[in-house]
Design a protein around this nucleic acid. Structure first.
Lengths: 193, 193
DNA sequence: AATATCATGTAACATGTTACATGATTGG
DNA sequence: CCAATCATGTAACATGTTACATGATATT
């Protein structure tokens, strides 16, 4: 089996913190894990159905007619530990910004500058968000998870700061490149083959 | 259309540097763009076929019977500029390491420590590789592309250094967590370093 | 001659997103 | 009552990997 194991892990993990509906799962994953994980409804509901079949989660009665709150079972906790111990599946990298910069000669220094500026602004936004999250007052219920969550926040902060530093360096390099008169417009070299 | 536009971009980009076979494309993408991009044969060949149909690349005669060297056409260069100017498509993040650490309470500090150590070792390997690439002697043919390539190397270096710094911090935090006796897993193993 | 590598391509599968269909509940 | 939001689910599509089939060329 082990079919949608990645989604399973995220779902079981979230339910290990507190029971919630499928809809709330999506919100929680987006808001809390958002900077390093994502899931869509199209993944979450089938995963919940499969987990229920396997006895790893169960529906707890809920206030609303159509809605079910899902809770993790002991079997689910065991499964979660198993999944977390599995080797990390590398996702093949696909960084659109780097792809554009690598072939940046086709775009010219100005367009590249603009791409880097956008990336820097985004990194600054992220950094501010991380720092805000770090400030949030501690919560009794999730106190035991907190130290682990901080590790991921810290990773986000390091990564954002690195992006900002790199951007400054890249902007300087691009300015230099333009001043040293590379081609303002990329040269349409004629290579007749 | 714009069907496989991401692959198209990488393929046209690589061919804008020099003509090569589909097989060589895969090698080039893996070795040169490897740290921020990847493509498989299953993507490359259909993309080449489509690009050929659209007149953006053409087959140049080749030494071997079955093999074709693909070269970018003027129309292909125009298309590449277009693609590079398209907005960057964000890939939804899926960081398996962060997912495990976020739910690290289920694994315990020791297992998390091991994950972080692996990540640090990987970042150090990468950093060494980037520094080696930076040292490589300049090449006449690709001189005009070089400054742009350096931008992506530099990004890789910043990112790797950030990962290493974060790892050290995380390791300290995990040690602290264990010493302060958080929720210990069945305390079987003693560390022997 | 045997093996390794280069080379092209396809089919089956895995994964994941988007858009839609459907309806309940809440707040103004 | 009406709109916004909560909630569940599915179907169509997009994307991408892996494994295979096939054969040429180079190396030993």
């Amino acid at each position: 089996m082990a079919r949608t194991s990645q989604t399973e892990t995220a779902v079981l993990g979230a339910l290990s913190v507190m029971p919630m509906t499928g809809y709330a799962l999506r919100e929680a994953i987006r808001e809390v894990l958002g900077h390093f994980w994502s899931e869509s409804f199209g993944q979450i509901y089938p995963a919940l159905a499969e987990l229920e079949q396997g006895g790893h989660v169960r529906r707890a009665g809920s206030g609303r007619t159509g809605a079910s709150t899902f809770a993790i079972t002991p079997s689910g906790t065991a499964r979660l530990k198993e999944l977390l111990s599995d080797p990390i599946r590398q996702v093949p990298p696909r960084n659109g910004l780097m792809l554009r910069l690598f072939f940046g000669r086709q775009l010219g220094p100005q367009a590249c500058r603009s791409l880097v500026l956008d990336a820097k602004a985004e990194a600054e936004r992220q950094l501010a968000k991380f720092e805000a999250i770090r400030q949030e007052p501690p919560d009794e219920e999730t106190a035991a998870d907190r130290p682990y969550w901080q590790l991921t926040i810290s990773a986000g902060e390091h990564s954002a700061r690195a992006a900002i530093d790199w951007a400054d360096e890249a902007l300087a390099a691009l300015d230099e490149l333009e001043r040293s008169g590379g081609a303002p417009r990329p040269a349409g070299e004629r290579k007749t083959q």
